[in-house]
Every structure is written in C-alpha cells, then in structure tokens.
Design a protein around this nucleic acid. Structure first.
Lengths: 200, 200
DNA sequence: TATTTTTCGACTAAAAAAGGCGATCAAAGT
DNA sequence: ACTTTGATCGCCTTTTTTAGTCGAAAAATA
C-alpha cells in the first residue's frame, strides 16, 4: 500500500539516493561551489541524468532543503507528542530545533554571497514560522491545562517565544561558534521565560 | 638583522598574511574550487591586489605548498638533530613526516580531477625525495656509528626505507582513513626494517 | 611636493557551468 | 521478436564565473 515503496520504486529510490548524496556535497561546499557534475559523478551518473529527476540545480537544492526541513518537522512532532512536563517539553523542543538546525546551517556556510539560495532558505523559514508558532502554542496550552503556566494571550506568548528561539538560531547561521554553550543559552532563556510564566 | 622582519616589512607581512589565509581556503575547498575572489575577500583586499603579491593563482598556490613543505622540512630537521636512539629517531622521523603530511593531504582533497595541481605536488615530492633519502641516510650512518645498525650499502638502504615511507603516505593522500592505526603501521614496518638491520 | 608603494575598479578573454535535445540503452509488456 | 516506456548519456549551446590585465587613484614615504 505504501505508494513510495511499492509504486514508483526505482525512480523514487534513485531520487532519494541523489538527494542523499547531493545533501552531503551541498553541505560541504555550499550551493554555489557545488556543481551538478560533482553530484553526478558522486552518484555515478551523467549530469544529464540528473535533469531526469530534477528540473534544475535550484530545484534539486530546494528538494534537499525540503527533506531536511521535513526531518526536522518530524523530530519536533515526536518531541511535542511525548508525555513530558511542559517545561521540559519546551526545553526539548528548542534544543531539538537548534541541534538539527545546526546541520542545516552548513548549507548557509559558503553560501554567503549567493543571494538566490539565501533568499530561498529565508523563504522557507518564513513559511515554517507559522508552524512553529502553532507548535509552541500547543505546548503553552498544554502547560496551562496542566496548571503549570499562566498565560492570557497564547498567540502573543507563542510569538514572543518563537522570536526568542530565532535569536538563538542567528549565531548558528551567521557566526560560527561550534558546540558553544548552546544548552546553557537555552536554559538561561528558558529560565527567564518560565519565571515570568510559571504559576506561583 | 632578520631581513624578513626588518627589511621588506610591510610587503612581506602582507604576503605572509595572504599565504596564511590562502592556505586555509585552499585546504578547505581544494585548488579548483577556490577562487581568487574567495581569498581576496578573506584578506579584505581587491582581487587585483593579490596580483601585486603573486603573479597567478598557481603561483600563489605553489607558494602555499612551498611554505607547508618548509615547515615540514624544519620539523624534520629538529627530529634529526635530537639526541635520541637511532631507532627512535627513525620512528620519530617517519611519524613526524606522516603526521604533517596529513595536513598537506588536505590539498589533495577535492583536487582529484585537477591535473595541474596534482602534477605540481607530485613534482615537489619528487624534488624532495632526494632530501629525504639524504636525511634517512644520516640516521642510518649515525646508527652504524653508534653500533646499532649493520648496513653495507647506505644508499640502497636509504632508498628502500624511503620507498617504504612512500607506501605509508599513499593511503593518506588517496584514500581517507583518518586517524587509523598510523602509529601501529609505522611500528610494524619499523620492526620489519629493524630486524633485518639491527646488530645481533 | 615628488616619488614610490599599494590598492582597486573596470574590462577582456578564457574556462566552466547550467541546461537542452536527440540518440541510445535497458527493461517490461505484448 | 518487437514495441513501448523508463532511464541514461554525449554533444551542443548559452550563460555565468573566473583568471588575469591595465591604468588610474589612494596611501605611504621621502
């Protein structure tokens, strides 16, 4: 019944393989420095063959990013559905997001001057911001129901927290402090948020 | 008295800085994928300015490699002049060479198809092979003087050992086994060499 | 101020890359 | 065997990038 595996088999399998390898190369060299020949060689196909699966370099790149984003979304979904304390859930959510995001950041790297790619990624971020707000809101609502949070305007709160997370993301894509106190930063911010949120 | 620092000051300083940064970028992306603009931006100069210091991209690249080679040569010189047991010296020599060589190997990486660069590096290797043989010979001679080795044809022995070392280098530049039993490999080969060499 | 060193922007020629297209090749189904 | 459809590839064109040039203009030095 699984269309992906039963139906378009070969084609989809090839596609997936290309995506997997393209991901590696893109993340290593960035969009601009990666050529379709690089990818084609790596998958042991002619460059032309790539066009059988993707309509353009940008199309391929977007597919790679999309897949990455889906993985992230999936992981976040799992975190959100775990039956944990709302505070922990908030914490896990943020940490998962940032950790996975770090790998996405590799795509930024060396893209720098490449306007097209950056704009595309920004576009994706914008689009997923709404989802993010929604997810945060769910956590907040759950927190209130469990009588741990005390919030009057969910929307505003969710937006605020989302903004805070964005603040944490920035140094990941811009500057390059590797494994720096990511966790510590999160906890600090979380503490601030909580003490203005927790029921006393 | 130090001409480098006292005389051509500014120019040489700039040159050195360019070399340093170029080294990083080359080793990251390889010769082909590195553009002069990449380097120029990194050193905060216009691309044209680079041509004031180097006559071409290849010239710059060669200068980078040269510097790397000199560093290696210097380190080897130190090892050779240390007052250690000949066997240890041989061991240290090989290990130092291979370790430093590993960083050089980065320049290979992503060069793969780039014939020009590869040929140039090969050329350097060829040129330094003579030096290498000479150094090994010094160690062997010292070993005999200290009554630890028993060798009849220094030249042949030195050439043989040099060849063995080359064998160890190969997987470093070609394949990519990172921190793999380098030391173990060296010891093994060394053991073989010694038991055919050591006075009993 | 005159001279020399250093930087750079604008330009060109050459190389590399993206992308297109039709000819093949391989695998199914008939 | 043979026709159809899916997949690959080589060759070609067009566009983009890149190395490299040159003269003019800053900056530094004398």
């Amino acid at each position: 019944m699984q269309t992906n595996i039963e139906n378009g088999t070969k084609r989809d399998l090839n596609r997936e393989n290309i995506l997997k390898i393209a991901r590696e190369i893109f993340s290593k060299y960035g969009y601009k420095k990666t050529t379709l020949d690089d990818i084609a060689n790596a998958v042991r196909k002619g460059k032309s063959s790539l066009y059988y699966y993707f309509s353009s370099k940008e199309d391929l790149f977007q597919a790679v990013i999309m897949k990455e984003v889906e993985i992230l979304a999936h992981e976040l979904e799992i975190v959100i559905n775990r039956n944990t304390d709302p505070v922990d859930k908030l914490r896990d959510y943020i940490l998962t997001k940032l950790t996975t995001f770090r790998s996405l950041a590799n795509f930024y790297h060396a893209i720098e001057n490449d306007v097209t790619a950056i704009e595309f990624i920004e576009e994706i971020k914008r689009r997923y911001e709404q989802d993010e707000i929604r997810m945060i809101k769910r956590i907040l609502i759950e927190g209130v129901r469990k009588n741990e949070f005390e919030i009057y305007d969910f929307n505003l709160a969710a937006i605020g927290i989302t903004t805070a997370i964005k603040g944490l993301e920035m140094p990941l894509s811009a500057g390059n402090y590797g494994a720096v106190n990511l966790e510590r930063s999160v906890d600090t911010i979380l503490k601030i948020i909580c003490y203005g949120i927790m029921k006393r």
